[in-house]
Structures are given as structure tokens and as C-alpha cells.
Amino acid sequence: MSTKFKVVASAIALAAATVFASQAMAQDKKVTLGLAVANLQADFFNQIKQSVEAEGKRRGIEVVTVDAKGDAATQVNQIQDLITRNISALIYIPAGATAASVPIKAAKAAGIPVVAVDRNPPDAPADTFIATDSVSAARTLGDYVCKVTGGKGNIGIVQGQLGTTPEMDRDKGFSEAVAQCPGLKVVAKQASNMWMQDEGFSIAQDMLQRNPQLDVFFGRADALAMGAAHAVKVANPDHKVIVVGFDGDVAGLKAVRDGILEATMTQQTQLMGRMAVQSALDLVAGKTVPKEQLQQAQLTTKDNAAPFIEKHP
């Protein structure tokens, strides 16, 4: 082997080592946020993801996103990987019926602060919890239904996945409002498995078949509500049936604007995304952040849907 070759080889090795070392150092100093999303197929989560990534970009922070596709076990694996990757803080949108506490315990053990969004494990709460005040929002929606129906009518509810926090909270708030409105009666309730539009369609269709006198459908998410609205359109009943949804995702807002849905509760996804980033940075910097940061959802009807479509709150 010639000397010349040896010199060249060592030069390359040295250069490579320098590059790797500097890269590693750069990554050590830079703030990296891990974002574990429950399921990117759901527009609501996707909105939050986009907001977090946009905010991260604006501030020059690296955001590493993983998608659990709705499976809690996958999410535990992914968060383990994020921790290995030395993230500075974790933004955690739990997957599964109720939030798993394992990821939070793991992150805490590694000294990584956690911001929970949408759901929060009761037995091991995150450092801060950002969510919509679903109970109060569902109550607002129930009051609105009472108002537009003149306080009278039969309600069919297309529920989300049973046992999940949003389903339970929305049930609680809406039931409270209906109880205050003696002419309104919930006559049918059925659960979906995946919060999906096609489920909403078939569930509502069957409800109408069994009970043609329904006046109101409440889809626990916009996708479910839009499925129900389509079922109403297909059944073409002899009286007016109004459909309300929840979440205020883009498709839902457009449906409200076009009069397909009567109303929805718009959750402030963009705001929550920005807040999540802000809270994560505050926690990294050692500042105190409130344990719970509940946001109001905005009642959205035909009158105020347009600006939300333009720019999501």
C-alpha cells in the first residue's frame, strides 16, 4: 500500500469524523421537539400536526413527527425511539381509547418534559395538558339545538368510539343541555368504531329506517355528522332534519357553509398547536406552565363558517 494512498485515506477519515462530530454537536445544542400523533388519517390531528410543524419552522426548531395510526403499542415504540433520539420535549397526542401512561412515565424517566394534547392519562398526567373544554363545548351545542328546534324534537346520536375521553365528555355536555330543554328527547344512540364518515352514513340510515320521526342528528365528530347528513339526503324525509357535528375540521366547516350541517363546534387546532410548541419551549427553559390549558370551542354556523375555512383558528 502506497504512502500516498494512506495519506488520502486518513484525510478522508479525518474529514468524515469532523463532519460527524460537528453534526452531533449541532444536534446536541439545537432544540428538537418530538411530536407523537395518534392518527394522521383524522383531520383534527393532522391540523394540529401542521400547526406544530409550521410553528416549529417559524421558530427554527426541528420537529420530528411520528404517527401511531391509532395503535397504542405502536405509539409506545415510537416514543421510545424519540427518546433515544434525544428530543428536548415531547408533544404527545395519545392513541387508543384512553391515553396510555407508559410514554409519559418513560419520558419523565429520561428527564424529558411532556405536553399532552387532546387526551391526558389520569394516572400519570403530563406536565401540561392542552385540550378543548369538550364538556362545555358540547353543552353550548346542545343549547343551540334547543334554540333552533324551538325546544322540541327527537334526537339521534351517532357516537364516536365508546370509552374514549372525547366521546364521554361530549356525551356529558350535550346530555346536560338536553336535560334543560324538556321538549328534546334522545331516542336513538349508536356507537361507531373509527369515527369515520361511512360508519356515520350506515348508522344514521339504519336509525332513520327504524325511527323515521327523527328531527336532529348529532354526529360526535364532523365526519360522522356528514355521513348522517348524507343518509338524511338519501332517505328524503317529509320533514326537516337538522344535523350538527363537532370538531370544525375543514370538510366539516365547508359542510356548514353549504348548509349540509346546521352547526359544528370548531376546535382551535392551530391555536392548540402553537400553544403546544410554546409550552414545550417554556418547559425546556424551566419556566412553570399551568397543569391544564383548556380552550373554548367556537359554535360555528353558516354565518361565521367562512373566515374559519380561510384561516383555521
Partner: peptide, 16 residues
């Protein structure tokens, strides 16, 4: 093993 890892039992586990 999965229940131990998740510290919970979920009816939606093992999808796919």
C-alpha cells in the same frame, strides 16, 4: 407481554 408493556388492556390492540 403487550399488556405489561402498555400497562393496560385495550380492545383495539393488535389491529393489523
Amino acid at each position: 407481554a403487550l399488556a405489561s408493556r402498555l400497562d393496560s388492556s385495550q380492545p383495539s390492540a393488535g389491529l393489523g
